[in-house]
Every structure is written in structure tokens, then in C-alpha cells.
Nucleic acid binder design. Sequence first.
DNA 1: GTGAAAGCGCTAACAG
DNA 2: CTGTTAGCGCTTTCAC
Lengths: 337, 337
Amino acid sequence: MATIRDVAKISGVSISTVSLALNGSRRVSADTYQRIWAAAQAVGYAPNPVAQSLKSGRSRLIGMLVGDISNPFFGRMLKGVERSAIEHRHLVIVSDSGGNPDRELAILDHLSRQRVAGVILAPHGNSPEYVARINQLGMPLVLVDHRIPGVECDFVGSDNTLASAMLTEHLIRFGHRRIAHLAGRTGLYTTGKRLQGFLDTMQSAGIEVDATLIVDGDYDGERAYAEAMRLMTRSDRPTAILAANNVMALGALQAIIDLGFKCPQDISLTSIDDVPWGNVIQPRITMVVQQVDELARIASEWLLERINARGGPAPSPREHILIPRLVVGQSCAPPSS
Amino acid sequence: MATIRDVAKISGVSISTVSLALNGSRRVSADTYQRIWAAAQAVGYAPNPVAQSLKSGRSRLIGMLVGDISNPFFGRMLKGVERSAIEHRHLVIVSDSGGNPDRELAILDHLSRQRVAGVILAPHGNSPEYVARINQLGMPLVLVDHRIPGVECDFVGSDNTLASAMLTEHLIRFGHRRIAHLAGRTGLYTTGKRLQGFLDTMQSAGIEVDATLIVDGDYDGERAYAEAMRLMTRSDRPTAILAANNVMALGALQAIIDLGFKCPQDISLTSIDDVPWGNVIQPRITMVVQQVDELARIASEWLLERINARGGPAPSPREHILIPRLVVGQSCAPPSS
DNA sequence: GTGAAAGCGCTAACAG
DNA sequence: CTGTTAGCGCTTTCAC
């Protein structure tokens, strides 16, 4: 591969002049610039980004670190982020923390050593040490999905409380009172918000919540299947289920089908988050969908903005809460009894 | 961030000794090694990978370049690849070619400039210039999914001909003769193989193929929906459809449902490739599934092997063809007439 | 306007 | 065994 030296030799100038010229300095005569440019073309010169990174301490790589890259939600997000990145001549390093805070910190460490220009992070920790480590990263950071209390940086997420509130309200209007909540992993930011939206709405409606109908599904399909099985085989089974995410809803639906129940005749089901091709799943599940593409767009835009603003004054932390949309399917009906 | 110089200063030796020691040279006394190691710990030293890359001409990054990262198939593959990579202390740069060969070549160029250690590529070109460019990459390369005629390198894929042959046979045994094929994008390697498996099996069974029942679905859900609509509204409609991939099958199913047909009573449907949560789609679609995890495992293993074997003799190109598994659902039945 | 030189952090001869 | 030195390819003062 051609280096700056080759170009210098061919065009008969020093390497510093080549660098100056190619970086658009106005202190190079038009004539020399032409010669240099022609030479660069001729040998197919392009600067070595590794050398540039070493010199500048920054690479043109951005990191994206999430809990599960095989989750289609993140797949779509990755696609959006990668698109923006490419447009700004950056590449994306993707990594999977498996939802483990320690692993996450270790990977952030690697990324920072790689001198990535910035990171989009779906965080999974909240301990004081974790927060401290995040705050010491010293590179542009945009949080998505979860927020970390105590970390001041850009955040893009959905209104999780509203999401579950919308669905709860929807179910209540159908006349449901015994509504079960398949909650997410205990301790996570979104889990709490979604639970809260459920509880608040129930309370506003003056409906007492049966605490045994709130179960931990761990954002996991298998786990949700098991929990739904337990719920549906109770004599005092719920008349509706609100699942805190898509895979849990599908797990629950599977349990419902396997047991021989009919949805929505025997039980209503609602879900937070879309599933790909959700419209061929019978019945179509009533859900609130997060605007993933919008989320990806804003997150990458903000990150790249901060990256480009380096040296200048960093904008103060912003946050954007996307409003989920309710998509009504055929999975809800009045309680049967 | 601490540099090798800091460690040298603290432990009272030169930087080269530090480098030697930390790289496990046996020519450093146990005593000095201890001091150096302790110092490195103390300041939290870790080598700067950018500097290492500049020096060695190679980074600990591997590229993965596919046609559509939001496709769950690649999502699962990415997960596997990333896992292996991390185990070998590498990070993964993911990029999306959008199935466009020029874009693909441009990105490969970026990756090669980044001095990535190797690339896993789902290729999308076949022109002579394309082949030439690929052959000149000069870095470890593993092809997945499609093969490029004229490029000698490791390849991991599925037996596409067998996949469609299995499904065609399955349909024929139910008594179907008018079988439609929703084919993939024209010109692609897999598209041809899948079509061939269909045609061969039909021929072996002595069934004449109606050429108008072979339609181009472009591996696209929308397109498949439209084509299925066209097929199903014909008076001489087929009694079964073989979709060349998952999204097309779902598009077709949607069309079937929207038109008021019942699957499998009115029409049988089969698909190549699994869909996530395929088992909650009603009816369960009979399909052959590719062993994605296995594919990811082998591809990344081979790539990392070549990366580590640099300098030594490169193993000659290998290929592994995964045998798809037939998963019988409830989407097939004897033709109704 | 252009060039010489220093240095980003590291590795690897080559000396001692 | 350990230190000196020369780069890897590039940017960026600072002289001329």
C-alpha cells in the first residue's frame, strides 16, 4: 500500500507538504497541490488510519455495546447506526455484553484502548463502582434504552412507563381487572419503569393489584413460557397478560397455545416492543412499538455531533424520550367469565 | 493512560525491557519481570493496540461484512462470531453492504486500510473486476453463505440445492404437482442453487414444471407478498409454494391469509431458513433450517486460525457445507382438489 | 510556500 | 540479561 512517502517522492516534494496539501491547507500553491493530488491518484494513496489514530489519539471507529446483538431490536438499531457512521466515514465495532456489567466494563475498556471516537451503550449496571467507571471513560458516550442514574450524558430511550400504561389502560377498557404482568429482569431501569406504568394505571383505575400476578420473566422467552404456564394453570388465572417485552410475549403465547387456550377468547395478551414480522403471528398481538429507527438515528447523530465537536464546547447532556405507538391487534377481548 | 514509558520509569528499566518482559520473553530475569509486572499493575498499564497495529501492520480487529445486518440470520451469526472473536481477544467491525457489490468493495477497502486481521464476508458480486479485487485483498478471508467462483478461500455455507430438494420432495410426497417457487434475487449464488434443487427434484419425479410458477421474489418480504398475491389470484393457482427464504415465506403467508385462504387446507407452504420464534407463527411453517450457530462457529474458527497462522504456511482453502435440517410444521397437506 | 524534525507508543534488531 | 536505536505512517510546529 502506498504511503505518504511514495506520493512525496513522485511529486517531488517533502512528506509534510503532501500532508498539508491533502489535508486542505491553504498554504500550498495550487500548482503543487495539483501535482500532489495527481500523484496520490496515480498510486492509489489513502492515508493509513492506524497511523492517524496513533498521532491523534482518536480513531474513526465507534463502538456499539448492547446486551444481546442477536435481538432483532438491536439488529435494526445497529443497521441505523452503521448507516450514519458510514456517512460520516466511520466504522462500527459491535460487541455483546450479555447483559453482564463486568463484561460490559471490560469491553468498554478495550474500546477505549482502541481509541474509539465514541460509544453507543445500552448499559446494564448501576452499582456505585460501575457508575464511577462509566463516568471516567472520557469519551463521547450516548446511552440508549436504559439510563444510568448518576451518569450525565446523552440519553435516547422510550417512555417505558407510558408504554405499559397505554397497554394497561387498553386492557382495563376491555373490562379486565385480573391482569398479570410478565416483568423484565429485576433491577433494570426499564423493568422498573414498565412495572410502574402498570401499577400507576391500575391504581388510577381503582383496581387492586394481585401481587402474585406480577412475575419475573427476566426478558427471556423460555422463562416467560414457564411463568405463563404457571399463571395459566392456576385456578384463579388472570384474564389478561401484559408482557414487558416481545420475546416474553411470544413465550407466553406459546404457553397459551400449548395448553389449548385460545387467545383472545380465553386470555388477552399485550406486549411492549414489536417483533419482526409480527403481523403474521396469529393472533396479531396488541402492542406498543418502540421507534427503533428513530432511536438509532438520534443516538448516532448525537454521538457523531459530539465526536465532531471535540475541542469545542461540549453540548450539555440531552435526552430524547420517544413516544411509543399503540398498535392494536386481535389479541385482546373482554374477559370471558 | 499509562504508557510503556511510565512502567519503565517506575520499575527502573528501559522501555525495551518492559516490552520484552510483558511479551513473555525468556531473556528477562525473574526478578526484573516481577518488578515490571508490579509496576504495570500499579499504573494500570495495557499496551496501546493502535501503536501495536502501526508497528505490526495488523490490528486485533476482524471485519464482518454482510448484505443486511438487520436480518436476524446475520444477527445470530454476528453473535457467534463476536463470541469467538472476544475469546481470541479480537473485536468485530460490522458493516452492511446492502447487497451492493461496489459498496462492498469500498467497505473492504476501508477495512483493509484499518489493517483488520481478517474478514468474514457474505459476498454479493461475481463480475470479473469484482473477483479480481477480492483476490487482491491480501488478508485472511472466509466466505459465508455465497461462494464466489474464481476466489480460492475458505467457504462455509449450507447445501442450498439439498435444502430446496428436501422441501420439494416433501411436497411431492403429499401429492403436489403444481408447485410454485418463490425464488431469490436473480444472479445470486444461493438463488441458483435453490432453484436447481427444486428443478432437479421435480424432474426426477417426472413432473413437468410450469415456468410461470417460478417467480422472482428478490429475497424480499414485500416483493414476495405481491408475487404470492399474483400466484394465488390465478385461476390455475399452484397447490403449494416453496419460498427460497424466510421473509419471503412470511410475505407469502400474509398474502394467503389476507386473501382469505387457509394454510394448509387451500395451499401448502414451505420455506428455507428459520425465523426467530417461528414456532408461534400459525401454522408452523415446514422448513429446512440452516445451522447458523455452527456456521458462525466454523467461520470464525477458520478465520482466527488463519490469522494466527500468519507467517506459517497457510492451510489450503477448505469448505464446509452444512446439511440443513427439515423441520416439519403444519403448513403442508395434500392438495385440496 | 516548503522542508526538517519531533513524536504518537510500540517492537525488534543489534550492541553491550 | 538489558539498553540504544531505528523505524511503523502520519501530523504539526518551527525554521527558512
